[in-house]
Design a protein around this nucleic acid. Structure first.
Lengths: 107, 107
DNA sequence: TGGATATATGAATAATTGTTCCGCCGAAAA
DNA sequence: TTTTCGGCGGAACAATTATTCATATATCCA
């Protein structure tokens, strides 16, 4: 049997899979989205609240949320005219905070 | 005492920290670098081998490696005129493969 | 020494991405 | 119904980024 790494991987990742993985990490690869995700870690928030916390326009938040939505990293709950976003998959938050902690340990 | 999430975080991440975190994830946010890292998961490789595996020029690989080097995600060993790259921090590979597995579970 | 090889680097170009601005829609309030 | 408000979406612009090309450096071999 061929050699395997500790992560269960043997061959180089194919172009298609790699592109998807890159997309996922790209979602975490922007200062504003990092801050948005740190907000959402504390619980669901609507667009206005996120905009105020992060310090960017509501439109900008909305664009970021669309991206996160398409990657299915967040889901929504509509209450009246407000839309509340949340991160429903705990694995996503784990992944995110591992990155955060890596940076924190370096400083 | 104020409410805390399971990840030990309470406040929104500041601009400066967020920028560093975004940088880290951006390193994983490119198809070629994802493939490079999947190669390096199997052990150290020189630039030429990476270029052949990933299917891009040696120059392109070199540029990517510089970025990974500056973020201290890889380190080097020089043997003659070849430069071998490796990922020395196992936490980095864990982070990377958690992303990979997330995508794999989705498909 | 001279030529070939492996990698690095800078500049230029091409492609992608974040934000702003504007208008739109649907829900609530008047 | 009309107005207001929260959020969405497209187009345009600015900024960033990946790749290529040309050149440079260092090492090996003849």
């Amino acid at each position: 049997m061929a050699k395997r790494s500790v992560h269960g991987q043997m061959e180089i990742l194919d172009e298609h899979t790699s592109a998807h993985i890159a997309e996922l990490f790209t979602a975490f690869g922007d200062t504003s989205r990092v801050r948005i995700l740190s907000c959402l870690s504390m619980g669901e928030q609507n667009v206005g609240a996120l905009a105020k916390s992060v310090g960017i326009s509501e439109s900008a938040v909305s664009h970021h949320m669309r991206q996160l939505r398409h990657l299915r990293l967040v889901s929504t709950r509509k209450a009246g005219r407000e839309v509340y976003y949340r991160v429903d998959d705990p694995h996503i938050l784990t992944l995110f905070w591992q990155g955060v902690n890596h940076i924190r340990e370096e400083e």
